[in-house]
Design a protein around this nucleic acid. Structure first.
Lengths: 133, 133
DNA sequence: CTAAGTGCAAATAATTTGCAACATG
DNA sequence: CATGTTGCAAATTATTTGCACTTAG
Protein backbone atom coordinates (compact mmCIF):
# COMPACT_ATOMS: atom_id res chain seq x y z
CA UNK A 1 0.00 0.00 0.00
CA UNK A 2 1.22 3.45 -0.94
CA UNK A 3 1.55 6.52 1.21
CA UNK A 4 -1.41 8.24 -0.44
CA UNK A 5 -3.71 5.31 0.17
CA UNK A 6 -2.55 5.01 3.74
CA UNK A 7 -3.22 8.70 4.40
CA UNK A 8 -6.65 8.60 2.83
CA UNK A 9 -7.61 5.45 4.70
CA UNK A 10 -6.45 7.04 7.95
CA UNK A 11 -8.52 10.15 7.34
CA UNK A 12 -11.59 8.03 6.67
CA UNK A 13 -11.09 6.02 9.84
CA UNK A 14 -10.54 9.15 11.89
CA UNK A 15 -13.75 10.87 10.87
CA UNK A 16 -17.00 10.04 12.60
CA UNK A 17 -19.23 11.39 9.89
CA UNK A 18 -19.54 11.18 6.13
CA UNK A 19 -17.23 13.46 4.22
CA UNK A 20 -17.25 15.03 0.79
CA UNK A 21 -14.17 14.37 -1.31
CA UNK A 22 -13.43 18.02 -0.93
CA UNK A 23 -13.32 17.93 2.86
CA UNK A 24 -11.50 14.62 2.86
CA UNK A 25 -8.83 16.10 0.61
CA UNK A 26 -8.42 19.03 2.96
CA UNK A 27 -7.89 16.70 5.90
CA UNK A 28 -5.47 14.49 4.05
CA UNK A 29 -3.52 17.52 2.89
CA UNK A 30 -3.18 18.81 6.44
CA UNK A 31 -0.70 15.98 6.88
CA UNK A 32 0.46 15.38 3.31
CA UNK A 33 -0.07 18.57 1.28
CA UNK A 34 1.29 16.98 -1.87
CA UNK A 35 -1.65 14.58 -2.21
CA UNK A 36 -3.88 15.87 -4.98
CA UNK A 37 -7.67 15.87 -5.19
CA UNK A 38 -7.55 13.59 -8.22
CA UNK A 39 -5.69 11.00 -6.20
CA UNK A 40 -8.33 11.23 -3.51
CA UNK A 41 -11.05 10.59 -6.07
CA UNK A 42 -9.13 7.73 -7.62
CA UNK A 43 -8.38 6.08 -4.31
CA UNK A 44 -11.97 6.47 -3.15
CA UNK A 45 -13.12 4.77 -6.34
CA UNK A 46 -10.72 1.95 -5.75
CA UNK A 47 -11.78 1.59 -2.13
CA UNK A 48 -15.37 1.41 -3.25
CA UNK A 49 -14.58 -1.40 -5.63
CA UNK A 50 -12.97 -3.20 -2.73
CA UNK A 51 -16.12 -2.52 -0.69
CA UNK A 52 -14.09 -0.66 1.91
CA UNK A 53 -15.91 2.55 1.27
CA UNK A 54 -19.44 3.58 0.32
CA UNK A 55 -20.86 6.81 -0.94
CA UNK A 56 -24.19 8.59 -0.91
CA UNK A 57 -25.69 11.59 -2.66
CA UNK A 58 -27.11 14.20 -0.33
CA UNK A 59 -29.44 16.33 -2.39
CA UNK A 60 -27.65 18.82 -4.57
CA UNK A 61 -24.51 18.79 -2.46
CA UNK A 62 -21.35 16.91 -3.26
CA UNK A 63 -21.09 13.13 -2.95
CA UNK A 64 -20.16 11.98 0.55
CA UNK A 65 -18.04 8.98 1.48
CA UNK A 66 -17.73 6.81 4.55
CA UNK A 67 -16.26 3.52 5.62
CA UNK A 68 -18.41 0.53 4.82
CA UNK A 69 -19.59 -1.58 7.71
CA UNK A 70 -21.79 0.91 9.47
CA UNK A 71 -24.86 0.90 7.23
CA UNK A 72 -26.97 4.00 7.60
CA UNK A 73 -29.29 6.22 5.66
CA UNK A 74 -29.39 9.99 5.54
CA UNK A 75 -32.03 12.60 6.23
CA UNK A 76 -31.24 15.85 4.50
CA UNK A 77 -33.02 19.00 5.61
CA UNK A 78 -33.83 21.22 2.65
CA UNK A 79 -34.35 24.10 5.05
CA UNK A 80 -30.97 24.33 6.76
CA UNK A 81 -28.93 21.93 4.67
CA UNK A 82 -27.96 19.76 7.63
CA UNK A 83 -27.97 16.03 7.23
CA UNK A 84 -28.52 13.32 9.81
CA UNK A 85 -27.46 9.72 9.76
CA UNK A 86 -30.11 7.21 10.70
CA UNK A 87 -29.97 3.43 11.11
CA UNK A 88 -30.42 1.50 7.89
CA UNK A 89 -33.08 -0.75 9.42
CA UNK A 90 -35.44 2.18 9.31
CA UNK A 91 -35.74 1.54 5.60
CA UNK A 92 -36.39 -2.18 5.85
CA UNK A 93 -40.18 -2.00 5.50
CA UNK A 94 -39.81 0.24 2.48
CA UNK A 95 -37.19 -2.08 1.05
CA UNK A 96 -39.57 -5.03 1.42
CA UNK A 97 -42.33 -3.08 -0.29
CA UNK A 98 -40.16 -2.00 -3.19
CA UNK A 99 -38.93 -5.52 -3.76
CA UNK A 100 -42.43 -6.99 -3.75
CA UNK A 101 -44.08 -4.39 -5.92
CA UNK A 102 -41.32 -3.39 -8.28
CA UNK A 103 -38.65 -6.04 -7.99
CA UNK A 104 -36.41 -3.19 -6.91
CA UNK A 105 -33.64 -3.94 -4.42
CA UNK A 106 -33.11 -0.91 -2.24
CA UNK A 107 -29.56 0.03 -1.42
CA UNK A 108 -30.07 0.98 2.20
CA UNK A 109 -26.69 2.51 2.87
CA UNK A 110 -27.04 4.74 -0.16
CA UNK A 111 -30.33 6.29 0.82
CA UNK A 112 -30.68 10.00 1.35
CA UNK A 113 -34.13 11.46 1.66
CA UNK A 114 -35.01 15.13 1.67
CA UNK A 115 -37.39 16.89 3.98
CA UNK A 116 -37.50 19.32 6.87
CA UNK A 117 -35.93 18.87 10.28
CA UNK A 118 -37.94 19.71 13.37
CA UNK A 119 -36.60 23.21 13.69
CA UNK A 120 -37.08 24.17 10.05
CA UNK A 121 -40.54 22.68 10.05
CA UNK A 122 -41.48 24.82 13.03
CA UNK A 123 -40.02 27.93 11.44
CA UNK A 124 -41.99 27.16 8.29
CA UNK A 125 -45.24 26.89 10.17
CA UNK A 126 -44.57 30.15 11.96
CA UNK A 127 -44.00 31.84 8.66
CA UNK A 128 -47.28 30.50 7.38
CA UNK A 129 -49.15 31.66 10.48
CA UNK A 130 -47.51 35.08 10.42
CA UNK A 131 -49.54 37.59 8.37
CA UNK A 132 -46.35 39.27 7.10
CA UNK A 133 -45.74 37.21 4.00
CA UNK B 1 -45.92 36.22 -19.22
CA UNK B 2 -42.93 36.32 -21.55
CA UNK B 3 -42.18 34.16 -24.55
CA UNK B 4 -39.39 32.32 -22.75
CA UNK B 5 -41.59 31.38 -19.83
CA UNK B 6 -44.37 30.31 -22.16
CA UNK B 7 -41.99 28.05 -24.11
CA UNK B 8 -40.52 26.49 -20.98
CA UNK B 9 -43.93 25.90 -19.46
CA UNK B 10 -45.09 24.30 -22.71
CA UNK B 11 -42.11 21.97 -22.79
CA UNK B 12 -42.77 20.92 -19.21
CA UNK B 13 -46.42 20.23 -19.91
CA UNK B 14 -45.56 18.27 -23.04
CA UNK B 15 -43.14 15.88 -21.36
CA UNK B 16 -44.44 12.85 -19.53
CA UNK B 17 -41.31 12.27 -17.51
CA UNK B 18 -38.93 14.28 -15.38
CA UNK B 19 -36.33 16.20 -17.31
CA UNK B 20 -32.90 17.56 -16.56
CA UNK B 21 -32.43 21.26 -17.25
CA UNK B 22 -30.11 20.21 -20.01
CA UNK B 23 -32.72 18.15 -21.85
CA UNK B 24 -35.41 20.70 -21.17
CA UNK B 25 -33.22 23.39 -22.74
CA UNK B 26 -32.70 21.23 -25.79
CA UNK B 27 -36.44 20.81 -26.23
CA UNK B 28 -37.17 24.47 -25.73
CA UNK B 29 -34.47 25.41 -28.20
CA UNK B 30 -35.93 23.14 -30.86
CA UNK B 31 -38.66 25.77 -31.13
CA UNK B 32 -36.89 28.87 -29.85
CA UNK B 33 -33.14 28.46 -30.34
CA UNK B 34 -32.41 31.85 -28.82
CA UNK B 35 -33.51 30.80 -25.34
CA UNK B 36 -30.40 30.29 -23.25
CA UNK B 37 -29.70 27.66 -20.60
CA UNK B 38 -29.38 30.34 -17.95
CA UNK B 39 -32.89 31.50 -18.69
CA UNK B 40 -34.12 27.95 -18.34
CA UNK B 41 -32.49 27.67 -14.93
CA UNK B 42 -33.83 31.03 -13.86
CA UNK B 43 -37.35 30.31 -14.99
CA UNK B 44 -37.31 26.88 -13.37
CA UNK B 45 -36.28 28.52 -10.10
CA UNK B 46 -39.08 30.97 -10.40
CA UNK B 47 -41.60 28.25 -11.21
CA UNK B 48 -40.46 26.36 -8.15
CA UNK B 49 -41.06 29.36 -5.95
CA UNK B 50 -44.54 29.54 -7.39
CA UNK B 51 -44.94 25.82 -6.65
CA UNK B 52 -45.60 25.11 -10.32
CA UNK B 53 -42.54 22.94 -10.61
CA UNK B 54 -40.67 20.55 -8.35
CA UNK B 55 -37.24 19.01 -8.63
CA UNK B 56 -35.47 15.90 -7.42
CA UNK B 57 -31.89 14.69 -7.29
CA UNK B 58 -31.35 11.34 -8.94
CA UNK B 59 -28.09 9.98 -7.62
CA UNK B 60 -25.05 11.58 -9.20
CA UNK B 61 -26.97 12.72 -12.28
CA UNK B 62 -28.26 16.20 -12.93
CA UNK B 63 -31.25 17.63 -11.11
CA UNK B 64 -34.55 16.74 -12.76
CA UNK B 65 -37.67 18.86 -12.93
CA UNK B 66 -41.34 18.13 -13.38
CA UNK B 67 -44.68 19.84 -12.99
CA UNK B 68 -46.04 19.86 -9.47
CA UNK B 69 -49.33 18.17 -8.85
CA UNK B 70 -48.37 14.62 -9.61
CA UNK B 71 -46.44 13.68 -6.49
CA UNK B 72 -44.12 10.75 -7.01
CA UNK B 73 -40.87 9.34 -5.77
CA UNK B 74 -38.02 7.90 -7.80
CA UNK B 75 -36.21 4.60 -7.85
CA UNK B 76 -32.78 4.94 -9.41
CA UNK B 77 -30.97 1.83 -10.54
CA UNK B 78 -27.27 2.06 -9.86
CA UNK B 79 -26.71 -0.76 -12.33
CA UNK B 80 -28.16 0.65 -15.53
CA UNK B 81 -28.81 4.23 -14.50
CA UNK B 82 -32.50 4.08 -15.33
CA UNK B 83 -34.97 5.70 -12.99
CA UNK B 84 -38.58 4.85 -12.33
CA UNK B 85 -41.33 7.00 -10.96
CA UNK B 86 -43.42 5.48 -8.22
CA UNK B 87 -46.46 6.78 -6.34
CA UNK B 88 -45.62 9.01 -3.42
CA UNK B 89 -47.91 7.07 -1.07
CA UNK B 90 -45.38 4.29 -1.10
CA UNK B 91 -43.30 6.43 1.22
CA UNK B 92 -46.09 7.23 3.66
CA UNK B 93 -45.19 4.59 6.26
CA UNK B 94 -41.57 5.72 6.18
CA UNK B 95 -42.69 9.34 6.44
CA UNK B 96 -44.76 8.50 9.52
CA UNK B 97 -41.80 6.74 11.09
CA UNK B 98 -39.37 9.54 10.41
CA UNK B 99 -41.74 12.09 11.87
CA UNK B 100 -42.32 10.09 15.03
CA UNK B 101 -38.75 9.14 15.69
CA UNK B 102 -36.83 12.13 14.40
CA UNK B 103 -39.35 14.90 13.99
CA UNK B 104 -38.31 14.84 10.35
CA UNK B 105 -40.92 15.73 7.74
CA UNK B 106 -40.24 13.73 4.60
CA UNK B 107 -40.62 15.51 1.31
CA UNK B 108 -42.29 12.72 -0.64
CA UNK B 109 -42.08 14.22 -4.09
CA UNK B 110 -38.39 14.86 -3.66
CA UNK B 111 -37.43 11.32 -2.82
CA UNK B 112 -35.02 9.35 -4.94
CA UNK B 113 -33.67 6.10 -3.61
CA UNK B 114 -30.87 4.05 -5.11
CA UNK B 115 -30.80 0.33 -5.64
CA UNK B 116 -30.94 -2.30 -8.34
CA UNK B 117 -33.77 -2.91 -10.75
CA UNK B 118 -34.93 -6.45 -11.38
CA UNK B 119 -32.80 -6.97 -14.46
CA UNK B 120 -29.58 -5.61 -12.95
CA UNK B 121 -30.19 -7.57 -9.77
CA UNK B 122 -30.44 -10.77 -11.79
CA UNK B 123 -27.33 -9.96 -13.78
CA UNK B 124 -25.50 -9.30 -10.53
CA UNK B 125 -26.46 -12.65 -9.09
CA UNK B 126 -25.37 -14.40 -12.24
CA UNK B 127 -22.04 -12.71 -12.04
CA UNK B 128 -21.65 -13.83 -8.46
CA UNK B 129 -22.55 -17.42 -9.33
CA UNK B 130 -20.27 -17.45 -12.37
CA UNK B 131 -16.75 -18.66 -11.49
CA UNK B 132 -15.20 -16.25 -14.02
CA UNK B 133 -14.75 -13.20 -11.87
C1' DC C 1 -41.28 54.78 -19.76
C1' DT C 2 -39.33 51.50 -16.16
C1' DA C 3 -38.71 47.56 -13.96
C1' DA C 4 -38.49 42.90 -14.88
C1' DG C 5 -36.66 39.55 -17.90
C1' DT C 6 -33.14 37.79 -21.15
C1' DG C 7 -28.83 36.40 -23.91
C1' DC C 8 -24.24 35.83 -23.75
C1' DA C 9 -19.94 35.09 -21.96
C1' DA C 10 -17.31 34.37 -18.07
C1' DA C 11 -17.12 32.36 -13.33
C1' DT C 12 -17.88 28.33 -10.07
C1' DA C 13 -17.85 23.83 -8.26
C1' DA C 14 -17.29 19.00 -8.47
C1' DT C 15 -15.19 15.67 -10.84
C1' DT C 16 -12.50 13.32 -14.59
C1' DT C 17 -8.74 12.61 -17.67
C1' DG C 18 -4.10 12.78 -20.20
C1' DC C 19 0.36 12.37 -19.46
C1' DA C 20 4.93 12.48 -17.84
C1' DA C 21 7.42 11.60 -13.50
C1' DC C 22 7.75 8.22 -9.69
C1' DA C 23 7.59 4.66 -6.41
C1' DT C 24 6.85 -0.26 -5.19
C1' DG C 25 7.48 -4.90 -5.34
C1' DC D 1 13.12 -2.89 -14.06
C1' DA D 2 7.99 -3.17 -15.21
C1' DT D 3 3.79 -1.78 -13.72
C1' DG D 4 0.78 0.39 -11.06
C1' DT D 5 0.39 5.16 -8.79
C1' DT D 6 0.64 9.85 -8.49
C1' DG D 7 0.77 15.03 -9.23
C1' DC D 8 -0.40 18.53 -12.10
C1' DA D 9 -2.79 20.91 -15.39
C1' DA D 10 -6.30 20.96 -18.56
C1' DA D 11 -10.93 19.22 -19.85
C1' DT D 12 -15.87 18.28 -18.54
C1' DT D 13 -20.36 18.86 -16.71
C1' DA D 14 -23.89 21.24 -14.27
C1' DT D 15 -25.00 25.47 -12.72
C1' DT D 16 -24.64 30.46 -11.47
C1' DT D 17 -23.67 35.22 -12.14
C1' DG D 18 -22.50 39.98 -14.14
C1' DC D 19 -23.92 42.98 -17.25
C1' DA D 20 -25.65 45.37 -21.13
C1' DC D 21 -29.73 45.05 -23.92
C1' DT D 22 -34.69 44.13 -24.66
C1' DT D 23 -39.45 43.77 -23.75
C1' DA D 24 -43.85 43.55 -21.32
C1' DG D 25 -47.18 46.15 -18.90
Amino acid sequence: MTAAKRAIADALVASAIDLAADELTRRVQSTRPEISPSTVYRVLDEFEELAIVEHAHLGHGATVYHLAGVPHGHLVCTGCGLSFEVPAELFDPLARDLLERYGFTLDRHHVAVAGLCERCRARDQDRRADPSH
